[in-house]
């Protein structure tokens, strides 16, 4: 039997690994992975399945490699990332940036792409009290407006684009 589709890759490798060499177990494990995928898709529509290792998500969330220029647009767009509402970033829109979150002008020097991926996708895994929402998650939300119900704030591709852009930020601008 084939592995489940790529979307189920979070749980499938673990399960099939544990069941290596035992065909019947492998089938059962694969079915279980599929079932988990189906139930989770019905109730919690994360932007993509992901696995957290420590303070990182190693695997990209989307198939297409993140594109930095697109990430900068996501960060500036008030309807999408709107990162400048809380963070200082090297963007023209960032002139009136907020200061709720850390200065990210050189965040690429501090955090790896995998660390950035977790902090954008599911930051409250690291700190449940943080004001920074989980941009990939949509489950367990209270009173979401109908127009946004069941949707994560950003798509998997948008997060990959953001990670690509953020991880390349390495210079602090000397403007006032």
């Amino acid at each position: 039997m084939d592995l489940p589709p790529p979307a189920a890759s979070v749980s499938a490798p673990l399960l099939t690994c544990a069941a290596a060499g035992r065909p019947s177990l492998r089938v059962a494990a694969t079915l279980l992975a599929l079932a988990m995928l189906l139930t989770s898709a019905a109730t919690i529509a994360d932007c993509a399945p992901f696995q957290i290792d420590g303070d990182r998500i190693e695997q990209p969330l989307a198939e297409k490699v993140g594109e930095a220029a697109a990430g900068a647009r996501v960060a500036a767009d008030r309807q999408r990332g709107d990162c400048v509402i809380c963070h200082r970033l090297p963007l023209p829109e960032g002139r009136f940036h907020g200061n709720l979150g850390p200065d990210l002008q050189a965040v690429g020097l501090r955090l790896s792409p995998a660390q950035l991926r977790l902090r954008v996708a599911a930051n409250r895994h690291l700190n449940p009290e943080s004001i920074m929402p989980d941009y990939c998650r949509s489950g367990d939300r209270h009173r979401v407006a109908e127009s946004h119900r069941g949707q994560p704030i950003l798509s998997a591709q948008e997060i990959e684009d953001l990670v690509a852009w953020l991880s390349g930020l390495e210079a602090v601008e000397k403007t006032p």
């Binding site: 004001i131 929402p133 989980d134 949509s138 939300r141 209270h142 009173r143 979401v144 407006a145 946004h148 119900r149 949707q151 704030i153």
Partner: peptide
């Protein structure tokens, strides 16, 4: 209570 797609409470801000 946190609420909405942005998952923020009145108290958060």
């Amino acid at each position: 209570r946190r609420r909405g797609q942005l998952d923020l409470s009145c108290a958060d801000c």
